[in-house]
């Protein structure tokens, strides 16, 4: 699904240069759920941005779904992003004066779907995150957790092969965070490949595969047995 070989990313400013990612290699198979942890500034976002084709890299090889991204044009990269990748950001990144419908609609427009197809996908995606009834609301009329679920719906609507989430619960209180986690677990069960950056060790432990980055390099890599965290999340969610 995703394969990085010896990828390096160096940020240069006038005074310093930072090896945000240093000789980094990782392969993720279809259907996996991977949590990426590490201290702040260690290169987690850099890794995810490169994985999501939002940033370039200086050295190494990266291919997604069998396609090497080296030398691809902006048009080709946009196409890949649009069709294969769904991105979920820490701060949701919804457009404030667009309704939920229009927010989810946005990537589908660039995909070139007709109106009927877009409508079907938007409704389906909002249904999945439990917000179909609020299609015409503005983001400001929702709680943070609901907003993040809209962002997830937006990522899902294109039916991507890979979901990338950068601290998706970072701005949420613990209850809302659990609801979002639960949603991600469900999506994974339905077959989605997910890579999620998180600073929360408990959250990471609920995810089958963990990768730790320190100073731009992978320092720890373990695979857990699936735990029952999601089960306990469910019971708490029901109380809410």
């Amino acid at each position: 699904m995703l394969s990085m070989q010896n990828v390096s990313r160096i940020y240069r400013t006038e005074t310093i240069q930072t090896h945000a990612l240093n000789d980094f290699s990782l392969s993720v198979n279809a259907g996996e759920f991977v949590a990426v942890t590490g201290p702040s500034g260690s290169g987690k976002s850099t890794f995810l941005n490169i994985a999501g084709l939002l940033d370039q890299f200086d050295e190494g090889e990266y291919s997604i779904d069998g396609v090497s991204v080296k030398g691809l044009s902006d048009n080709q990269l946009s196409r890949l992003r649009n069709e294969k990748i769904g991105f979920i950001f820490q701060n949701y990144n919804l457009i404030p004066d667009y309704s939920l419908f229009d927010n989810v609609d946005m990537p589908l427009r660039y995909r070139g779907f007709n109106g009927k197809e877009r409508k079907r996908r938007i409704e389906e995606a909002l249904e999945k995150v439990g917000l179909a009834s609020r299609m015409n609301y503005l983001p400001s009329q929702l709680s943070g957790g609901q907003q993040q679920r809209v962002a997830i719906a937006r990522a899902l609507a294109g039916e991507p092969k890979l979901l990338l989430a950068d601290e998706p619960t970072g701005n949420l209180d613990s209850l809302m965070a659990r609801q979002v986690m639960e949603l991600l677990h469900d999506l994974n069960k339905d077959g989605a490949t997910i890579i999620m950056v998180t600073h929360d060790p408990d959250q990471a432990r609920s995810v089958p595969r963990n990768v730790q980055i320190i100073d731009g390099q992978m320092t720890d890599h373990r695979v857990y047995q699936p735990q029952s965290v999601s089960a306990s999340v469910e019971s708490e969610a029901e109380l809410a």
Binding site: S78, R81, N93
Partner: peptide, 16 residues
């Protein structure tokens, strides 16, 4: 800028 960045992140090309 950030909205344009978002559009590109979600699959709009520079040309678009």
């Amino acid at each position: 800028k950030s909205e344009m960045g978002l559009r590109r992140a979600l699959g709009a090309s520079r040309n678009q």
